[in-house]
């Protein structure tokens, strides 16, 4: 496969075709922070936290490094005033939804994000899709999925699968917030208190 040469943070980096900027950077030990990326999952591009500055053909633009394929002679800056500003804003927006998320708080310190910048609208889930994608792509079970759209979008467990989930729970540690466990707990409680399901388990 043909090699592609690019520059990341002033360092010459060799990558192969089809790689993303994020992968190329990780290969040489350059850290780009991510929220919705997972090595085992297809790139998703939901959080935009991995935003970097990309210079090609004399133009500079912002790009999500977990999706952007490497190109010859790209010049990438993983930290800059612009990039930091974007990440800070993303954090502030996400913190209004999930003010207690540890991962977000740690990043907030680094980027100087104020968790009270926006009015709280604690929906907890930050829609990174890690749980949904992990269940679909790795476990191939699709026990948890998204419902609704826009501001009302949320995740939902399948009641019929809740027993399977009880034994798996592999997605729990992926969730940057506590939304996933809460959604699981809610469905599990509904299943165990619903008479139709009880009857089934008695049979």
């Amino acid at each position: 496969m043909s090699k592609i040469l690019l520059k990341i943070d002033g360092k010459d980096v060799e990558a192969s075709e089809g790689m993303t900027i994020l992968e190329a950077a990780q290969n040489v030990g350059i850290v780009i922070p991510t929220l919705c990326h997972h090595d085992k999952l297809e790139p998703y591009g939901a959080c935009r936290f991995c935003t970097v500055e990309v210079e090609s053909g004399g133009w500079t633009k912002l790009a999500a490094s977990c999706l952007y394929p490497v190109e010859k002679n790209l010049v990438v800056r993983t930290r800059s005033e612009k990039v930091d500003r974007v990440r800070k804003m993303i954090l502030q927006l996400l913190l209004s939804h999930a003010p207690d998320a540890r991962e977000l708080q740690d990043f907030a310190k680094e980027y100087g994000a104020d968790k009270d910048r926006f009015e709280k609208e604690a929906s907890f889930c930050i829609h990174c899709g890690l749980c949904v994608r992990y269940c679909a792509e790795v476990k191939k079970k699709d026990a948890v999925g998204f419902i609704n759209r826009g501001a009302k979008r949320e995740i939902s467990f399948t009641p019929e699968m809740i027993e399977y989930c009880w034994n798996c729970k592999e997605c729990f540690s992926l969730c940057p917030t506590e939304a996933l466990q809460a959604a699981y707990g809610l469905t599990a409680a509904l299943v165990s208190s619903s008479p139709s399901c009880e009857r089934k388990s008695e049979e």
Binding site: V132, A136, D142, V144, G145, F146, N148, S156
Partner: peptide, 12 residues
């Protein structure tokens, strides 16, 4: 097609 995906579309 997994039911969760159908649900996603049907609620979208």
């Amino acid at each position: 097609v997994p039911l969760t995906r159908i649900q996603h579309i049907a609620t979208f």
